[in-house]
Amino acid sequence: MASRDSLADLLARCALHDRRAFEMLYQQAAPTLYGLLLKLTRDRELAADLLQEGFARVWQRAGDYRPQLGQPLAWLGSIVRHLAIDRLRRGEQRQRTELDDSGWALVADDGPGPEDRLHAEHGDAALARCLEMLDPEPRRAVFLAYYEGLTHDLIARRLDRPLGTVKAWVRRSLQRLKTCLGET
């Protein structure tokens, strides 16, 4: 069994249209991206559709990846998130309230919070530490925006707080994360 190639190497090979590298990239990165899309859309069909769209884009644009753009997984994450947000906002419909049973199970299963998972499974201890420094409610607002794709007003409704408060929370949390993560 060959050793796991780094995602950056696989992306470089995809840029040369190496199909085997693309398959390996998919195997390694798809679960993370699909998980992200499920959280964002709460809709298995839409998540599957966006995952496919995202990887088609990755195949076409693998040559655009540069290490300065961050970790490969974060770069891939930004591609699928932009697709998801565009799709969700197109018409601003909340079609994701139509959940099937397994979808509801997924939403109900909060399990360990995202920051625990970051720490336990991916060793992004720096990010987990920075998130812990945020107050609970502002942190929840950032998570709702990132993982559920909610806008300020929907976050305000969900948390039952004034819109201005939520905007200030998000703004301050982002600045605190930036300072805490430093310019690495």
Partner: peptide
């Protein structure tokens, strides 16, 4: 900002249905 914020992306993996790869 993408480099910072998208570090959150790795938080909750979930196996995608095999049909997605075949379709892709």
């Amino acid at each position: 900002w993408e480099r910072r914020i998208n570090r959150l992306a790795t938080a909750s993996p979930s196996a995608p249905p095999p049909a997605i790869w075949r379709e892709l």
